[in-house]
């Protein structure tokens, strides 16, 4: 079955060089797809490379990092092959991004309105007055009260939730086809989190953009995602529909991740965390990177795990996929 694809990331590699000149393979051969209008969640612990993947899609990796290989196909064209100027026409217009910390992501010396208007003027041929009207409309759309007044305010005059709404308004002002949301609610209060997520869902319905949602919070994934990509130590370990991941997951890491979420309906004793620590990117183990923490580990794990397709897009990278019917039962 061939479904339509908006974004396809193929074998993406992003390497960094640290102060001592050693190479860190922060993202090492990541592949996944995002269908139009759907929400795909990229899940993993902090430091697993999910945010770097997001930045690499827009080619905004920091100066000490480089995209070492792979393809990022957006509507069939490889973004990594575009000139910088062509890439600038994709950023903000076709693909927009919002970040974790809205107070850091807005420029403190320009008003909110100025920053939204700038994005509109850049990608749409409208007058400044029209752009201002559009910006006001966007602020209204994201549920900011008194949008006209807010246009003239500086970021520090808004609350955290309002700032994230303003960021969303800015990101969506040019109606992008894909919104990358990098931990959009992590820094916000729980009640505000729910509002922002609801807002994203509502806007997705109105505008029809796809969302690549980057998060470590499985609650948000369950709430928002259509499809899920699980990353560990710079690699994808498993991907599939939300149902595949939550109900039929096959990778021991995914299982550990699911089990580490406290649940009211399960006996407290079942709450387990994964033993050991996320490895230092300088010393990733050879072969399967989950080695050393995995309860299924044996000598075969010293080689690169195979890609095992389980049908309907559910894919797991594990030597023991055949015997790891691990997720059934208690979940």
């Amino acid at each position: 079955m061939k479904e339509p694809v908006l974004l396809e990331v193929r074998n993406l590699k992003v390497y960094f060089r640290n102060d001592e000149g050693l190479e860190l393979r922060a993202v090492d051969g990541v592949s996944f797809t995002v269908p139009p209008g759907k929400t795909v969640a990229l899940v993993g612990e902090s430091g697993c490379g999910k945010s770097v993947t997001a930045l690499a899609i827009l080619r905004l990796v920091e100066a000490n990092g480089r995209i070492a290989g792979g393809e990022v196909l957006f509507e069939g064209k490889n973004l990594l092959a575009l000139s910088e100027r062509e890439m600038q026409r994709v950023r903000g217009k076709e693909i927009a991004i919002i970040f974790q910390e809205p107070s850091a992501a807005l420029n403190p010396v320009y008003t909110v309105g100025e920053q939204i208007v700038e994005a509109i003027l850049l990608h749409q041929s409208v007058s400044r007055e029209k752009a201002r009207a559009l910006a006001e409309e966007m602020l209204h759309l994201v549920g900011i009260p008194e949008p006209r007044k807010r246009l003239n305010e500086y970021p520090h005059e808004l609350s955290g939730g309002m700032k994230q709404r303003a960021m969303i308004a800015m990101a969506l002002s040019c109606r992008p086809k894909l919104l990358i949301a990098d931990e959009p609610t992590t820094s916000l209060d729980v009640t505000i989190q729910a509002q922002i997520l609801e807002l994203l869902r509502e806007l997705q319905r109105q505008i029809g953009m796809a969302i690549l949602l980057i998060t470590h919070d499985l609650g948000i994934v369950a709430d928002m995602a259509d499809e899920v990509v699980v990353m560990y130590a710079g690699k994808v370990v498993e991907r599939g529909t939300k149902y595949d991941i939550f109900k039929r997951c096959r990778h021991p890491y995914t299982l550990g991740l699911l089990r580490s979420v406290p649940r009211l309906d399960v006996d407290e004793n079942a709450l387990a965390s994964i033993p050991g620590f996320v490895p230092d990117p300088l010393h990733f183990p050879e072969g399967c990177r989950f080695r050393g923490r995995c309860f299924l580990e044996d000598e075969t794990c010293a080689t690169e795990p195979p890609e095992v397709a389980l049908g309907d897009g559910h894919v797991v990278y594990c030597h023991h996929a055949a015997l790891s019917e691990v997720c059934h039962g208690e979940r």
């Binding site: 930045l55 827009l58 905004l60 910088e84 600038q88 026409r89 994709v90 950023r91 903000g92 217009k93 927009a96 991004i97 970040f99 910390e101 850091a104 992501a105 807005l106 420029n107 403190p108 320009y110 700038e118 994005a119 850049l122 990608h123 960021m167 800015m170």
Partner: peptide, 22 residues
């Protein structure tokens, strides 16, 4: 290194504008 500089780039602004304006 600030995030708002990255935001400016993510908007699609030219590097010159990112540096001189933001």
């Amino acid at each position: 290194r600030k995030e708002y500089v990255r935001t400016a780039r993510a908007k699609g602004l030219d590097e010159r504008v990112v540096i001189h304006k933001h």
